[in-house]
């Protein structure tokens, strides 16, 4: 039983009793792949939409994170009957002319594409807006919680 904190670009796999967590998400996204049959799940803290061929940190990028997490689940004895949830992808500052403009939205779109290509259902998402999120996934209870400052906590 452990709590795994996924920092930016990092990932973790958890079993029954474990909590997976990504804190203080702005434009980044906390993605969780959930085994529908066994108590096992994987989380990634995704930063950018496209790896452009880089393979240094697969869970840093939306286009390589899904395949990589699936591989980790397989190695850990997953049934490979997988669904997914995600939250984050905000636009924290109201800017009109910076490269920051739409990185959160592009992250969310790229992840949805990757999930679709991998044939994984996105059960629910809480993306966009202009507020920070912390996500936790309780592997035993299969509960994905999204916490915010001033907007409370919701399960999606």
């Amino acid at each position: 039983m452990a709590e795994y904190f996924c920092g930016m670009g990092e990932w973790a796999v958890g079993q029954a009793g474990d909590i997976l967590c990504a804190r203080g998400l702005g434009s980044c996204i906390g993605l969780v792949l959930i085994d529908n049959k066994k108590r096992i799940a994987a989380m990634a803290h995704v930063m950018l939409p496209s790896s452009n061929g880089r393979s240094d940190m697969p869970t840093k990028y939306a286009d390589s994170a899904v395949t990589f997490l699936l591989e980790q689940l397989r190695k850990n004895g997953s049934s490979m009957d997988i669904s997914s949830k995600m939250a984050g992808g905000a636009k924290m500052f109201n800017v009109s002319e910076s490269s920051l403009l739409d990185i959160g939205r592009r992250n969310a779109e790229a992840l949805e594409n990757s999930l679709r290509e991998a044939g994984i259902i996105l059960v629910s998402k809480d993306v966009g807006g202009s507020f920070a999120r912390t996500v936790t996934f309780d592997v035993m209870k299969r509960r994905f919680l999204v916490k915010t400052i001033g907007r409370g906590e919701v399960e999606i």
Binding site: M8, L25, G26, S27, M47, L48, A132
Partner: peptide, 17 residues
């Protein structure tokens, strides 16, 4: 542009880029 929220969230986009 101004925002009040979690420290990491205000920085993550800039760090990513």
């Amino acid at each position: 542009a101004v925002a009040i929220d979690m420290n990491s969230a205000l920085l993550d986009g800039i760090i990513s880029l």
